[in-house]
Design a protein around this nucleic acid. Sequence first.
DNA 1: CGTTGAACCTGTTTGC
DNA 2: TGCAAACAGGTTCAAC
Length: 301
Amino acid sequence: MPELPEVETVVRGLRGPLIGRRIAGVRFGKTDFIDDPAALSEALPGCRIVRVERYGKFISLALEPTDAARTPVQFMIHLGMTGQLMTRRASDAVAKHTHVFVELDEDLELRYTDARRFGRMLLVTSEKKAEFHSRLGREPLDISEAEFAELIGKRHARIKALLLDQSVLRGMGNIYTDESLWRARIHPAHEAARLNGEQLKELYRALRRVLAAAIKLRGSSISDYLDAEGLPGDYQSRHRAYGREGKPCPRCRTPIRRIIVAGRSSYFCPQCQRAPRARKRPTRGAGKTKAQSKRVQTKRG
DNA sequence: CGTTGAACCTGTTTGC
DNA sequence: TGCAAACAGGTTCAAC
């Protein structure tokens, strides 16, 4: 659920309440989405939160220990599909599916709620920093047009798969990928390397405009997303393609269609976003026919 | 390299 | 009404 604009909104909303605060303790409900819960219990108490940042879809709480013997760490939180992070008074009622309570001073708590538990929490120490960042690509709003073209333009994957790949660009998800492709008039299954310079430029511009506009409206709320103050975003009213199957394209009135690309529902206008020509694999030898690659499901043998 | 499908888990919506 | 299937903003991994 939460993509770059939603995570950015949460981060901005957490800075005020969290920066400068000291962590008193941590309590857990279920912990199967936490890399090493014991390490959190061990490291967090006594630390001061000095920065709140976003890396793609990760929220980072930079922690300075008050104990000089310990070293600074980053507490990384990924919201997955249904994660919510907000500050509450310790005496406030606890929402269902709340699994982490970070006890702060002055009767405050940072609470993590996540029905599906697709989120993730981990501690990144200075030694693990390189490894953590090696899995993440570029920040879409920091990259230049030339760098974007270089990064995308020679790849043979479908453009949608590339935009969703967090090791290429970090932060794009299903909504903003579809919205950007609609704006740039590019079919989600288009092979990246077959996009011309003009299309790459359009896509780069579309991405930036869509992400910036979504951040301005504090993200999209469809069913679960709420920001750090418990407020929904407003960008869902600006969706042009995502979630609009059968509704008219805002540009040409052709009904929006939904297909599966890169394993995800992909909404696009079949008129504005022309299907790419069938790709030829420059393979050696005989290619497979469709009939040959078809297979019967054999689930339980 | 790239693609697909399944898995992780729960809740909600859709279809028969 | 009831029940099962499909679907959901994400990521990862095996198999091809």
